[in-house]
Design a protein around this nucleic acid. Structure first.
Lengths: 351, 351
DNA sequence: CTGAAAGCGCTTACAG
DNA sequence: CTGAAAGCGCTTACAG
């Protein structure tokens, strides 16, 4: 309110609305030069760049990413997320955001809740002209993926197989995971295995189930059953397990679609039916969430290499952002068996 | 590749780069009219608006939020998050994002990892000219908050008390929560309570500890101890508990800073020391995460009203965005005791 | 209520 | 390597 600030004495303690124009004036160059100085691809004499940086530093200049995004990249990566119940997604989100930030971009997180369709979500996210899109815990209609590609916005589907989709897919080998689960259960001497899936997640459920059942049959096991929970949640696993044990042919071991369902299931087995894990019922999950290693659950599980999967996804995404001619690829990472106390020890075999 | 598309036959199957200009041409009005039609505050004749909407619909027009944000609001809300270990934050994030989306805005999620300071994170987020900022699981230096306010970017601190900070604070009454915990433990007949906090989270730790200890003293309890875990995690609770029971004066009940630490602690009590919960050791946490209600943990806890807290935070934030003259307020919501099986039943008192 | 015009802050051919 | 100029897609006083 005192005297108007003269252009010469810009020493405000906090960066306010310093734009490229002020920096150009301070450095005594054109605004084009400032822009190029800040842009790695822009040709700029070292001296000029130094002058510009000094001026920017002095004034506390921060580029306006919105303005930049108007002609250039927005530096925004959209993350579509459906499942906020499986704790695995918290660490996935942590890894995703930090990997994206390492590329000097930021994450626009869209909650694709039950009231919002994935199509709407994509439309919304495209209003921000994101540079790329990562879809977790659900898939995307092929036509939507194509529409994104047509706009040169690469799409990565995380965690789902989605064969033939025109996008980069990063998932782990769920069929092999299912087979591993079958082997460990059979090896441990269980004879009546069950599979508990979920309705919401098509490809992961079907792949794991397929690998599991196929392998059971290969090994001559005939007494298997399957059932489905509604969602990827503790409650869902609990309820599905109650249904399973209410029927006449009760299983002696259960392969759950994921760890959080397995935890719910294990609690049902122990507290609802008074059975012992692993003696009466063997339990195995998928993911290897933090809780799986807890003493309370001590869950045998098929570990998904989430950190690797995230790095693969983000690396592939940025490669496609850099060079839009790169064809989408499929990455199927191996999963590994983590043996803990929820399955019986495998008897030593005399070869 | 056939013939160039004439402006008259715009019937492409998917919206591509249709801008306000195309819509204006189609609707035969000026671009100003289109802009006003889409802006609630813009005066526009109903007929004009109808024409514009019809044209927009026909062409599949979607506004470019980046361009809009250059002169107007960005519709972007920044969310700063530090803690990706406590599962409570997954549902908080779910609630936050959907509340923000209900306001037709979207969430820019910044992972304030250990390698990135909160100051850097704020600077980054401000490059996107977010309309508002929500800080979870950590606080913000007052000078940074002031810098944001000076740019008319309101800040809401979620979950921390942070007295005197020039921002809106939404938290629950942690002191009262600590007192409740003391009361339930003493009422149940425990005599040597301990408090397990965490170093990372100043105000919540100190408030809960203060309420807890103050109340213990008020009621004449003298044999209490305190210790600290490093982080808000299962492992941290486990380790802190091991330390506690390695010392000479072992507690007979423990109040943990949060549920996930309590779960780790309970597992240590049971599996590391072979003690019974609640007979030998009573356990109480804070949050009421999903896992607290599991059969395995069945954890007595001080419930934080997260959904209410999120709604309060988002509502307050948008009020301040709408009217920047509104002063920041403090909202302290009540927490409630949820009694489960990890504490002994309270003996019926003959008044 | 409406349109022409200026402007938001930056990028990017285009000459030099 | 550099600057002047046009433009990204939208908003917003300003006249009418």
């Amino acid at each position: 309110m005192s005297s108007p600030i003269k252009p010469s004495q810009k020493l405000s303690p906090y960066p306010d609305n310093i734009t490229i124009t002020e920096v150009a004036a301070e450095a005594q160059v054109s605004i084009s030069a400032v822009s190029r100085a800040f842009n790695p691809t822009g040709s700029c004499a070292p001296k000029t760049r130094a002058k510009v940086f000094a001026a920017a530093e002095k004034l506390g200049y921060k580029p306006n990413r919105l303005a930049r995004g108007l002609k250039s990249n927005s530096s925004l990566i959209g993350i579509l997320m459906t499942d906020f119940e499986n704790p695995a997604y918290l660490s996935i989100l942590s890894d995703l955001t930090s990997a994206i930030q390492a590329h000097n971009c930021h994450s626009l997180l869209i909650n694709v809740g039950p009231q919002k369709s994935v199509t709407e979500a994509v439309e919304l996210i495209m209003e921000y002209h994101v540079d790329g899109l990562i879809v977790t815990s659900s898939s995307l209609p092929d036509e939507l993926i194509s529409a994104c590609q047509r706009r040169n916005t690469p799409v990565v589907i995380f965690g789902h197989h989605s064969r033939n989709a025109p996008a980069t897919i990063v998932s782990c080998d769920n069929v092999a995971g299912g087979r591993m689960a079958a082997d460990i259960l059979l090896d441990a001497g269980y004879t009546r295995p069950a599979f508990v899936g979920a309705t919401t997640s098509v490809s992961t459920t079907t792949d794991r189930q397929r690998g599991f059942i196929t392998r059971l049959i290969e090994r001559g096991c005939t007494e298997w059953t399957t059932t489905e929970g509604n969602r990827h949640s503790y409650d869902s696993g609990y309820e599905a397990t109650c249904k399973l044990f209410a029927s006449t042919d009760k299983p002696d071991s259960i392969f759950y679609l994921d760890d959080i369902m397995a935890c719910g299931g294990m609690d049902a087995i122990r507290y609802e039916f008074g059975l012992k894990v692993p003696e009466d019922v063997g339990v195995i999950g998928v993911d290897d969430i933090r809780l799986a290693a807890s003493r309370a659950y001590d869950l045998t599980t098929i570990r998904q290499p989430f950190t690797d999967m995230v790095n693969t996804a983000v690396t592939a995404l940025f490669e496609q952002i850099k060079d839009t001619s790169i064809e989408p690829k499929n990455f199927t990472l191996p999963c590994t068996l983590v043996t803990r106390g929820s399955t019986r020890a495998i008897p030593t075999q005399a070869e």
